[in-house]
Design a protein around this nucleic acid. Structure first.
Lengths: 331, 331
DNA sequence: TTGTACGCGTTATCAA
DNA sequence: TTGATAACGCGTACAA
């Protein structure tokens, strides 16, 4: 392991001088700077980030808190894009990233969670899909010990930003579009996500508004983003509704498969724009989000907070559309 | 930030004593141990992992090197499972994990890659899907500066282990089974993965052996694990072959869709056992791997290396089967 | 059995 | 403009 001492020795200067060169201090002579840079290059020296963290008081490591408890294979796609977006930005900003799954904090108090994070030298967090059930994490956000960016929530305080699409409008639009494409939509079944989620509440409100406007009969059930549950719910109401609106593509696919199995045709619409839709239901309306970009924007937002700016709400665009098989394979 | 000094002060002992308690030293009196543990609990103290790393000479941070350059959405599933498996083990072993994408090393020499990794205090690596094109990474493995575990390769040296299914046997079995289920299989199209990959070579050898044994006419083309390419290749040979064997499920799905579009029925088989298969082709033979488990075993293997054991080859089981929609949604 | 002192690689503060 | 030297938080010989 080549250290700053090796560079100092090779360049014939003190290690503090090397440090100054590396950190672009002003008061260094051209001559010594060149000597040091030469030595750095020859030794392939890269500062030890651990020692840097320890030395500077600021540890600047980002904790990614992901929620993968819905045990469906196809949330993988979304999470993976969140990952990749965050990692790419982390590389650009030269910030370390440590990944956690929210489930691992389930049995801990907020103090314990906080201590755990700090032990990893984490001073900022990106939290995906925060649920109101994660009391300990919410507590941490409110205490403002960490800079936080919430993805798909809308809580904001001086140290906390939120990055999200407008779930309310998106759900409103995709549902309305689907209903308008149907000649009869008197009875609507809405399969919501999980209770307690910010997303779920927003989308639910949109449907309720639509009910007011279009005056249909609305049945609401919670599918917990689970395909199996969506199937069961669909089966239950299969003859009693004209149209099925789902809070996720996966539930929509579940619903549609049940319809097909029973030889029934009814409009179904989903949400998220996952690739699977292109394979199994290319005519289904859905809301397409760019998850990778969302995650990158979240990281930029975190950087803003680290630079001392205040938390805010950042809204990103979405697209109401269908997803075609050929669009998918040609990407 | 509560440090070991705070704990020592609160417990009324020296910080070295606290350290001994935390690291389960033998020679500590019951009395002081309790005092220390009480203070630790009250302060929610967790050792600063950065300082620990710096202090111990062994930095024990694992670098995960993933290969996501094949730009298909459905490799997400596999990579995600690799991630989750590794992260879970990392948590158990209390080892930090830093993630890299092999593409970010593309323009670097092996020395630069090595320096980059070391600057992150990484002393061991898990490398997924190493290609012979990654010369710099291969160089690092051969230099034995890092403990390495390769997933889906078979290179072994004292500091390097490999964890893999037997790709040769798996490809042999799934292809043979598919051929045996067909009454006429005189002409076989094999759509291989990417040139230079260990996996591709192994699977290709299996097909060649099968050709010897069953004496069919074999056409080999490289699809680069790309669904679009597999479609094009299939279209090219659509009337000239009896059966299509693919080195990945995604390519198999591409091939099968082309057949369907052209109103032709021919057997197709895939490889990997991704969830998508259950949605679009539940009768297709494939090789099912447990990617999460594979990744966990790789981590265990890394731990073995860190404990001083020598590198070895670890083979893990697979399953030749079809994937049913209902199996998937009920998981 | 406990405490002192030093080192890990770096940055930051001063004195030179 | 440069170079000693003290932190940063922790582990660990070694002394007490």
């Amino acid at each position: 392991m080549t250290s700053i001492n090796d560079v100092a020795k090779k360049a014939g200067v003190a290690k503090s001088t090397v440090s100054k060169v590396l950190n672009h201090y002003q008061l260094v002579s051209e001559e010594t700077r060149l000597k040091v840079e030469k030595a750095v290059k020859e030794l392939n020296y890269v500062p030890n980030s651990v020692a840097v963290s320890l030395s500077k008081k600021e540890f600047n490591r980002v904790g990614l808190i992901m929620d993968i408890r819905h045990n469906s294979q196809f949330l993988d796609e979304i999470d993976m894009h969140y990952f990749i977006g965050a990692f790419e930005k982390a590389k650009d900003y030269r910030i370390d990233v440590i990944t956690f799954f929210s489930s691992q904090f389930d049995d801990m108090t907020s103090k314990q969670v906080s201590a755990t994070l700090k032990s990893h030298s984490i001073n900022c967090l990106i939290i995906y899909n925060l649920s109101t059930e994660n009391k300990n994490i919410i507590d941490i956000i409110e205490k403002q010990d960490f800079n936080c960016v919430l993805v798909d929530s809308n809580y904001v305080n001086p140290k906390t930003s939120s990055v999200s699409i407008n779930h309310y409008m998106a759900q409103y639009e995709v549902a309305k579009k689907t209903i308008e494409q149907t000649h009869k939509a008197d009875k609507v079944l809405y399969i919501a996500g999980g209770q307690g989620g910010y997303i779920t509440t927003q989308r639910l409100n949109a449907i309720k508004r639509l009910k007011q406007e279009l005056e249909f009969e609305l049945t609401i059930r919670y599918g917990d983003f689970n395909e199996s549950k969506a199937r069961a719910i669909t089966l239950e109401y299969i003859n009693d509704v004209d149209i099925i609106i789902c809070a996720s593509d996966l539930m929509a696919i579940g619903a549609q498969f049940v319809l097909i199995e029973n030889g029934i045709t009814k409009p179904v619409c989903g949400f998220d724009g996952i690739t699977l839709v292109g394979y199994v239901s290319s005519t289904m309306n859905t809301v397409k989000q760019n998850f990778k970009k969302k995650s990158m924007i979240a990281f930029d937002e975190l950087k803003r907070l680290l630079d001392g700016d205040k938390g805010r709400y950042v809204e990103i665009p979405y697209d109401v559309c269908t997803i075609n098989y050929f669009d998918i394979i040609n990407r």
